[in-house]
């Protein structure tokens, strides 16, 4: 049993972290929030005045902003689905199959975790851009039209490919983590009782590894949804990821108000998606029990 400690004592130990995040994280977010309503402005000589102008512009259905948000969402969601499927089968593979050289292969797949995002994006730009190896191979195999753009394309194919490459190792690690907690006799029992390997995988392993699976998918999704580097290198000039749109508004057009509104909506979407996702998952898993 762990000893109880008063909350005030705990706060004392937490204070370095709290002070740090208040200044470097919470305060900036408050400023962004104020700026989105025109109550504060960087580099403006006009006196601050409350306005909903920027929000109206953002939620204009014909405007570019909602499309950016939607693009960031579906693009990351699609990548997450692909990552989940690949990672599940790889995790099964690493968990059940033993072979010579396994330790080398299982070190190999972790490499993308430690390659900076900017470089991963650039590496895939090398491969997918016209004249790159993968693009040439696909064109020679007549899978794609030789003139089709695989990077900087309006569908974000390049972004998805690079995101999958960068994020699947983390997901595999998480799923293997939960697989290790499954009682191996369960699988043995189902096999002895006559079910095939894949049947026991889908009926026993998949449901039991769900926690790692679901935690991994939301983490990958949120990472990609808010990411900058990959979309920056591999994205098209339109549609843009929301992060790119904000960056351009700040650095090129000095549109601080508009950038702040986008930031507020972007942040709230990210937090809301995570919250709802975990709630729904908790509910589903609660029902199953």
């Amino acid at each position: 049993m762990k000893p109880k400690v008063k909350f005030s004592v705990a706060l004392l130990y937490l204070s370095p972290v709290i002070i740090f995040y208040s200044f470097i994280f919470v305060l900036p977010l408050i400023l962004v929030f104020l700026q989105s309503f025109g109550l504060y402005s960087l580099g403006s000589t006009k006196p601050p005045k409350f306005t909903l102008e920027y929000y109206l512009k953002f939620f204009d259905l014909k405007g570019p902003y909602l499309e950016s948000l939607w693009f960031s969402f579906w693009n990351s969601a699609l990548a997450t689905v692909i990552i989940s499927i690949i990672s599940f089968f790889l995790a099964i593979f690493f968990y059940f199959v033993n072979f010579k050289g396994k330790s080398f292969i299982s070190a190999t797949y972790k490499i993308p975790l430690f390659i900076p995002y900017l470089i991963s994006a650039f590496a895939w730009w090398n491969l997918l851009s016209p004249g790159g190896y993968v693009q040439r191979l696909l064109a020679a195999a007549r899978i794609v039209n030789p003139n089709m753009l695989l990077v900087n394309d309006p569908n974000g194919i390049g972004i998805i490919v690079a995101n999958v490459w960068m994020n699947f190792p983390y997901m595999v690690l998480l799923i293997i983590g939960t697989l290790k907690m499954i009682d191996p006799t369960l699988i043995e029992a189902s096999r002895t009782l006559g079910s095939t390997f894949w049947k026991s995988v889908f009926k026993i392993v998949l449901p039991l590894s769900m926690p790692g699976f679901l935690a991994g998918s939301i983490l990958s999704f949120i990472g990609m949804f808010g990411a900058f580097s990959v979309a920056f290198i591999l994205g098209a000039s339109w549609p843009q990821y929301m992060s790119i749109s904000i960056y351009n508004d700040v650095t090129q057009f000095s549109q601080y108000g508009m950038a702040s509104v986008q930031s507020v909506v972007y942040m709230i979407s990210a937090i809301l998606i995570t919250y709802l996702y975990t709630k729904i998952i908790a509910k589903i898993q609660g029902e199953r029990k």
Partner: peptide
């Protein structure tokens, strides 16, 4: 977990104001 959920560009433009 919140610092990992909030997109970095969002806190970035807030910090830009303060640092400036």
């Amino acid at each position: 977990l919140i610092p990992l959920i909030v997109p970095p560009i969002v806190s970035g433009i807030g910090i830009l104001s303060i640092y400036t």
